[in-house]
Simulated scan of single mutants.
Amino acid sequence: MQDISFELRGEYIELDKLLKATGLADSGGHARMMITEGQVRVDGQAESRKTAKIRAGQRVQLQGQPAIFVLAPQG
Rank of each mutant, 00 (worst) to 15 (best):
M1L: 15
Q2P: 15
D3Q: 07
I4P: 06
F6H: 11
E7S: 14
L8H: 09
G10F: 05
E11V: 04
E11W: 10
E11D: 14
Y12V: 10
I13E: 04
I13P: 06
E14I: 04
K17T: 13
K17R: 15
K17I: 07
L18K: 06
L19F: 07
K20C: 05
T22W: 11
T22Q: 06
T22K: 03
T22E: 08
T22R: 09
G23V: 05
G23N: 04
L24T: 05
G28Q: 04
G28H: 04
G28T: 03
G29R: 00
A31C: 10
M33A: 14
M33W: 13
M34Y: 05
M34I: 05
I35W: 00
I35L: 02
T36S: 12
E37V: 13
G38F: 03
Q39H: 15
V40H: 00
V40I: 15
R41F: 03
V42Y: 02
G44W: 08
G44F: 10
Q45I: 14
Q45D: 13
A46N: 15
A46V: 14
E47G: 01
S48V: 09
S48W: 09
S48K: 12
K50C: 01
A52N: 03
K53N: 08
I54K: 06
R55E: 14
G57T: 06
Q58H: 03
Q58I: 07
R59N: 10
Q61S: 13
L62Q: 04
L62H: 11
Q63Y: 08
G64T: 06
G64M: 15
I68K: 04
V70G: 02
V70Q: 00
L71F: 11
L71D: 13
L71P: 10
A72L: 04
A72V: 12
P73T: 03
Q74S: 07
Q74C: 09
G75Q: 11
